[in-house]
């Protein structure tokens, strides 16, 4: 069965396939089998993943399997809760069924972070032009998702808002264009420039406060099999009201800053080291401090122009 855009299927077919665990989605280098019975999950997928290629029939072994399910028998019926089950044991905070979409996204992130050995994975946002990528590495709250969303408005392709997937063979970054996860004030900021039609409903009361997702565009998904080399590596830091600063850092320093953001560098060892050195060799790296999204966008676009991106 061929993959088709999720939007071509009726909600009932999607819901049935999700319940029976036979919804297979292909995004970039990963195929994902999704399962869950909650209405909120079906609605979320139909909205936020509407352009993602899926088939409602499990024909292959998939890279990732996520079952959004109750943590135990009791919580399936009484004071219902859900957790993401990626097929291996991970600590997961049980969530109310209305937050099943968050459980799904958390489960997908955990699976890629902990199971993927084909690529060196970095916790980073990545966007690309037709010449190369910008890899944005920041701690939570550093503004990488907001900046990635802003760069999308400037015409950059969304590669990923969570992962840099570094290929060991040719040192390119692979797209994995899942929706951009936005928290707190970033939700309204991105709504303002992307438009409300590109945003999911806001999930309130999550362990991380309010969360909403900015949908990947059909063009991002259509080009998800076109990896590109990193040309620019950014380490942004948001400080309320700060004067903007830009500082180029050496390649070895960039290397050492990226290693802690990798979820599998020490597991993979030699191929991760070799490919990371190659990636850093071919890119320029900067630390930027900024006080607003407009400033981070201005700095980044200037640096991108200087890097021929």
């Amino acid at each position: 069965m061929e993959f088709q855009s999720l939007s071509v299927f009726s909600p009932k077919k999607v819901r049935d396939a999700l319940r029976q665990g036979r919804l297979e989605m292909a995004l970039g280098p990963f195929s994902m089998r999704l399962q869950g019975a909650d209405k909120s999950l079906t609605s979320f997928l139909l909205d936020v993943y509407r352009d993602a290629p899926v088939r409602l029939c499990l024909e292959d072994v998939t890279d990732v399997t996520i079952h959004v399910r109750a943590p135990n028998f009791l919580r399936k019926y009484i004071r219902r809760q859900v957790i993401p089950d990626p097929g291996f044991i991970v600590p997961a905070v049980p969530l109310p069924p209305t937050l099943a979409p968050l459980a799904l996204e958390m489960g997908l992130n955990l699976s890629v972070a902990l199971k993927c050995c084909r690529f060196t994975t970095f916790h980073a946002a990545v966007v690309g032009s037709d010449k190369g990528c910008i890899l944005i590495s920041a701690n939570s709250g550093g503004g990488k998702s907001t900046l990635a969303s802003a760069l999308m408005e400037e015409g950059y392709r969304l590669f990923s808002d969570e992962f840099g997937l570094l290929d060991h063979g040719n040192t390119v970054l692979h797209p994995y264009p899942r929706p951009v996860s936005l928290k707190g004030q970033s939700i309204q900021i991105v709504k303002n420039f992307a438009g409300v039609e590109w945003m999911s409903k806001t999930l309130s009361g999550t362990p991380k406060g309010d969360i909403a997702y900015r949908r990947a565009r059909a063009s991002d998904i259509a080009s998800a099999n076109q990896p590109l080399p990193a040309k620019l590596i950014l380490f942004p830091s948001f400080q309320e009201g700060a004067t903007s600063t830009t500082k180029e850092i050496s390649k070895p320093e960039a290397l050492m800053k990226l290693i802690p953001s990798s979820t599998n560098y020490h597991l993979l060892g030699e191929p991760a080291f070799t490919s990371l050195v190659r990636m850093v060799s071919g890119a320029r790296a900067y630390e930027i401090t900024y006080g607003s999204t407009a400033e981070s966008l201005r700095i980044t676009t200037e640096l991108a122009e200087g890097t021929d991106l």
Binding site: P252, F273, V277
Partner: peptide, 22 residues
Amino acid sequence: TLLQSLDDVTVAFHKTSGDTHI
């Protein structure tokens, strides 16, 4: 130990510990 030149320094990956050094 894997050694790679990067700018004007060498970076080393120590396979036994998994640590990277400048």
